[in-house]
Amino acid sequence: MRRIGLEVLERVLYPVIPVVVTAEHQGRVGGMFAAWWMQASFTPPILAVAIAPERYTYKLVRESGVFAFNLLDFKLVDKAPFLGDVSERLLPGKIREAGLNIMRGEVLGAPLIAEASAAVELELVKVVEAGDHDVFLGEAKAVYTVDDFRGGMWSLETYRPLMYLGRTRRPGPVYRVYLTPRGWEKREIEFAGGKLKPLAEKRVRLISRVEEAVKASSNMEEAVDAVRRILYEEGLDPSDAEYLVEDALRRVKSYRREGQSRS
C-alpha cells in the first residue's frame, strides 16, 4: 500500500449502499441520500446516520423525532438526482417530482418511499455532534421488505442493490457514479443535471450568502437575524435560519482548523 491524502478518505470507503432518509414535519415531507450510516446496536435495534445541519432533512428529523431509512433498487437510479443533488428547501415535494410515491409506516406513521425495496421506521433517541455533521441515532420500530428478502436474507433474485461510488472531479461536468453488484453494472449521472441545475446553483449561492453573513456577524443572534433576512429575500422559510447558521459556523471552524494545520 501507499499513503494518500486524507481528503479522499471518503472515497476509499466507497462503494456503499446509500439509504434515503425520509421524514416529515408540519405536512412537509423530504428525503435525502445518505452514504454515512450504520447499525449501532442489536438491543435495542439502533441505526445511525450522519446529516449536516444545512440539509432540510436535518430539520425534519430534529423537529419530528421520527424518520425512516429506505433502500432502493438499481432500477430507480434515474431518480437519484432528486434525492441527492437538490434540496427539499428549494424544490418542495421533490420526492413526488422524482416520480416516487409516499406511503405511511404502520407503527410511527413515518413517510416511506412506496417503491423502495426495504424501509425501516425509526424513532429518534439521540443526536451526537460529529464535526460538520451530526449523528442521528434512531431506534427501529418496524421494518418492511419486498419478497426478495426471505429466510432472514436477501436472495438477490430480483433485488439489485443501488450502490454509490462517489463523484467525479472538476474540471468539466461532475457526475455521481452508481453501480449494482449484479454484473457490476455502472451508471454515471450528471450532478444536478437538466432542470435541476438552477436549483443546485441556487443552493450553492444561498450557502455562500449565509456563510458571509455569519462571518460578518458579531454574535449568534445577529447572525440568525441576518440569515432570516436572506431567506425572506429568497422566498424561503425564515425559520430555517438557525440550522443554516449552525452549519455555516461549523464550516468556518473547519476552515480555521485547516489553516492552522497548514501554518
Rank of each mutant, 00 (worst) to 15 (best):
163 M>K: 02
118 A>Q: 13
126 K>N: 11
120 V>G: 07
89 R>W: 10
194 G>E: 15
180 T>L: 12
201 E>D: 12
94 K>V: 01
151 G>N: 11
211 E>Q: 13
163 M>H: 06
97 E>W: 07
99 G>W: 00
199 L>W: 12
146 V>C: 10
129 E>Y: 00
167 R>Q: 09
195 K>H: 13
92 P>M: 04
147 D>L: 09
81 P>H: 11
180 T>H: 09
201 E>C: 05
116 A>Q: 06
135 V>L: 15
179 L>H: 14
122 L>H: 00
204 V>Y: 13
104 R>I: 01
200 A>T: 03
99 G>N: 02
187 R>C: 09
178 Y>T: 14
80 A>G: 01
145 T>V: 13
88 E>K: 05
186 K>I: 14
121 E>K: 03
82 F>T: 02
219 N>Y: 08
152 G>A: 05
196 L>S: 01
188 E>S: 15
193 G>H: 04
128 V>L: 15
198 P>W: 01
181 P>N: 05
182 R>L: 15
96 R>W: 08
123 E>Y: 11
203 R>M: 13
140 A>D: 06
84 G>W: 08
136 F>R: 04
211 E>H: 02
198 P>I: 01
131 G>E: 06
207 I>W: 14
133 H>P: 01
114 A>V: 07
139 E>A: 15
172 G>D: 00
136 F>T: 06
182 R>Q: 13
116 A>N: 04
175 Y>C: 08
139 E>I: 14
122 L>I: 03
178 Y>F: 15
137 L>R: 01
123 E>Q: 15
170 R>C: 03
178 Y>Q: 09
196 L>H: 03
149 F>E: 04
81 P>D: 08
112 L>N: 02
98 A>M: 07
165 L>P: 07
102 I>D: 03
209 R>F: 07
95 I>V: 05
98 A>K: 06
88 E>C: 10
163 M>W: 07
154 W>A: 07
198 P>M: 06
182 R>W: 11
177 V>S: 09
85 D>R: 04
101 N>F: 05
183 G>P: 12
87 S>I: 06
83 L>H: 00
200 A>K: 12
192 A>S: 07
80 A>E: 00
159 Y>Q: 07
154 W>T: 03
91 L>W: 10
204 V>H: 13
99 G>K: 03
199 L>F: 15
166 G>W: 01
125 V>W: 10
134 D>H: 01
91 L>Q: 10
140 A>L: 00
133 H>I: 08
187 R>D: 10
191 F>A: 11
132 D>R: 09
129 E>G: 12
186 K>M: 14
188 E>N: 12
100 L>W: 00
115 E>V: 00
132 D>H: 11
107 V>W: 10
171 P>W: 06
98 A>F: 08
155 S>V: 13
81 P>W: 10
95 I>P: 04
148 D>M: 06
118 A>D: 14
127 V>E: 09
92 P>Q: 03
106 E>I: 00
126 K>W: 13
